[in-house]
Amino acid sequence: MVDKQKIHLTVNGTAYDREIEPRTLLSDFIRHHLDLTGTHVGCEHGICGSCTILMDGLPVRSCLTFALQAEGKAIETIESLDKNGELSPLQNAFWENQGLQCGFCTPGILMSMKAFLEDNPKPARDEIREALSGNLCRCTGYHDIVDSVVAAAEAALSSGTAKA
């Protein structure tokens, strides 16, 4: 039996201290230990992208990260996007353009696109498609997702802020 180890990290602005088994994946830590079930777990080997979260601002696969590797880091999950139930501009763009159907892949796509639009506020459609290649969606055929990202970029630019 392997001893539990202490971990300290920040998730969506709240600091947490927990004791966990070393094998605990960050995805399972977020879902099971913190009850933040918005982060979805699909393939569990880094292919599908559903579990993508931000670690110190960078999108990473939480299923390919041990929670202990996030020691001292700032994590953002899908739950950080809305403000008191009001959708963020990026979420709103997906809502308006039907950028989701079943919604399973959506948390990972939104977290990936949040970081992508901060890096590249005026992306071409080809660049959006390339950036989406790390997230699988089996419902939409991607077309409406690309439209949603275009709309989010336009909304952010017209409101005078690159923040999605």
């Binding site: 880094g46 992208g49 670690m55 999108p59 790390g134």
Partner: peptide
């Protein structure tokens, strides 16, 4: 190499 999310780590 894979996707940008993988290359971040």
């Amino acid at each position: 190499i894979a996707h940008f999310q993988i290359r971040n780590k």
